[in-house]
Nucleic acid binder design. Structure first.
Length: 279
DNA sequence: CCGCGATCCTGGGGGC
DNA sequence: TGCCCCCAGGATCGCG
């Protein structure tokens, strides 16, 4: 989610208030087929605002539709600002996995690139957003007041799955990804294999502000650039330099020196300190 | 109803 | 150099 918020902040100044003058849709699908008449429904529309819910980007269009976008694992946007006509030949060449290019009335263009094509774009009427399958079951956002300790205590109480899996569940908290769950559990010194329902209220009360803090720090750092993610300018995020455990298998724990462990939970890698996060 | 493994897809890195 | 296997910021589906 910090990566998505970074993309939103990078795109917003270039797209908000602009008309989409041309939509170049270069294939028929990403993860899902593009909607019917996708190009026609985008061209001529004004982007009123660019928002975010969980890991979805939401471009509010002036005809009552919302362009819903998800970056999946490898999606990225880049912005090319307006160039003088005679500088045309210097514009960056099309990348191999550039799937959608939107030209805007201010002369900028935004390009969606996604090698793995786990991302998607679709159009949903504004009035149906809340009830749409993408959004209806989402839990609270991890920053701000939406996520409370009382809520999380109550929600986790019924859970028999490991706390790691529970925090990745978007219906419990909307927007936490693998990196940030690992980092938050480390900071809270909670073992990722413990059953969610067996955490104490005190542990959960400790965890909630830590989740907010990790996410806020990561947004401020422009997200984490491991392989694909970059800001829309092409600059990398730098939160990866602040990882204490994620992607650090075998390296010493910054608190106690024990080697960081990697295990697999629900098919995803979990990194943790076996000493600081002992069961 | 739950929890988990398989799955979609391409590319990068390490071992041999 | 090349091949093969493993791994990846996500989320859904179908199974037991």
């Amino acid at each position: 989610m910090p990566e998505v918020e970074t993309v939103r902040r990078g795109l917003a100044p270039s797209v908000e208030g602009q008309t989409i003058t041309r939509a170049d849709i270069r294939r028929k699908d990403l993860r899902f087929p593009f909607p019917e008449r996708f190009r026609e429904r985008l061209e001529g529309r004004v982007v009123a605002s660019l928002g975010r819910r969980a890991k979805y980007l939401l471009a509010d269009l002036d005809d009552g539709e919302v362009l819903v976008m998800h970056l999946g694992m490898s999606g990225s946007f880049r912005v090319e600002e307006a160039q003088p006509a005679d500088f045309h030949h210097r514009r960056s060449r099309d990348g191999k996995h550039d799937h959608v290019v939107l030209a805007l009335s201010n002369g900028a263009s935004i390009t969606y690139n996604d090698p793995r094509r786990f991302g998607f774009m679709t159009l949903v009427p504004r009035a149906e957003i809340e009830s749409h399958a993408f959004f209806a079951e989402l839990g609270p956002e991890p920053v701000g007041n939406a996520l409370s300790a009382e809520y999380l205590v109550e929600t986790l109480a019924k859970r028999g799955s490991p706390i790691k899996a529970s925090l990745l569940d978007q219906t419990i908290i909307a927007g936490l990804g693998n990196i940030y769950v690992c980092e938050a559990l480390f900071r809270a010194q909670i073992n990722p294999t413990r059953k969610a329902g067996q955490l104490t209220s005190d542990e959960i009360a400790t965890l909630v502000p830590i989740i907010r803090e990790v996410i806020a720090e990561a947004i401020e750092a422009g997200g984490s650039s491991l392989r694909d993610h970059a800001q829309v300018s092409g600059e990398l995020g730098y939160f990866q330099h602040r990882f204490k455990v994620y992607d650090r298998e075998g390296e010493p724990c910054p608190l106690c020196g024990t080697g960081i462990a990697r295990i697999t939970q629900s098919g995803r890698s979990t990194f943790f300190c076996p000493t600081c996060q002992a069961v």
